[in-house]
C-alpha cells in the first residue's frame, strides 16, 4: 500500500514539477545526519527494494529506505528523478525540424515502406488470411482495435 502511495506521489509530482529547472544536483533533505539536515544528491533509486542511494556533499554514500523519509524528502527525490529523466536535450534543437508525420518517419536513404492495407470487415480479412488449399499458405490476422478511426481522428 505504501509503495502504491509513493508511486502515486511520484507520478503526480512528475506532472506538477516537470517544468522546474535544475540549478544544483544537491538537495537539502530534512533527514538528519550528524545533527544536520542532509545535503545530498540522488544517484540511484531502487523501485524493488524501495530505497534510494544518496551521495552527500562530502562524498559519503548513503542508502536510505523510502519508509524512513517524510513527504518533503520524498518530494525532493521525485524532483531529482524528474530532473534526471526529463531534462531537456543538451544539444541545440534543429532549426526547422520536419513535422513528425509520415514524411518524418522515412528511413535513412529515403526508403519508405508501403502503407498498410487495413480491412474493416473481419470476413474479408479472414478470406485473405486463408491463403489457399494448403494450411501452410495461411497467414495470421493482426487486429488493431482503436478508439476512433485509424484513417481519421483517433
Amino acid at each position: 500500500m505504501r509503495r502504491v502511495c509513493f508511486i502515486a506521489v511520484l507520478c503526480l509530482s512528475f506532472a506538477w514539477t516537470a517544468t522546474l529547472a535544475a540549478a544544483d544536483d544537491f538537495l537539502k533533505f530534512k533527514l538528519i545526519r550528524n545533527g544536520q539536515p542532509l545535503e545530498a544528491r540522488v544517484v540511484q533509486y531502487d523501485f524493488v527494494e524501495q530505497n534510494v542511494t544518496l551521495v552527500s556533499r562530502e562524498g559519503q554514500e548513503l542508502v536510505v529506505s523510502i519508509s524512513e523519509l517524510g513527504t518533503p524528502d520524498k518530494r525532493l527525490i521525485v524532483k531529482a528523478l524528474e530532473r534526471q529523466l526529463f531534462q531537456k536535450p543538451s544539444r541545440t534543437p534543429e532549426k526547422n525540424p520536419a513535422p513528425n508525420d509520415l514524411a518524418a518517419n522515412r528511413m535513412p536513404g529515403g526508403v519508405v515502406g508501403e502503407p498498410l492495407v487495413w480491412h474493416a470487415k473481419f470476413k474479408l480479412a479472414a478470406e485473405q488470411a486463408r491463403g489457399g488449399e494448403a494450411v501452410d499458405d495461411d497467414r495470421p490476422i493482426v487486429w488493431f482495435r482503436v478508439l476512433g478511426d485509424l484513417r481519421g481522428l483517433m
Binding site: 528511413m107 515502406g113 502503407p115 480491412h119 495470421p140 476512433g148 478511426d149
Partner: peptide, 23 residues
C-alpha cells in the same frame, strides 16, 4: 504516426499478416 509508418513494420505486416481494424 510512429509504429505503423515504420518501413520494417509495414513490410512485415504487409507480407506476413493480414491487417484488420475496428473502432
Amino acid at each position: 504516426t510512429v509504429s505503423f509508418s515504420q518501413p520494417q513494420v509495414q513490410q512485415t505486416m504487409s507480407r506476413d499478416f493480414v491487417c484488420f481494424t475496428t473502432s
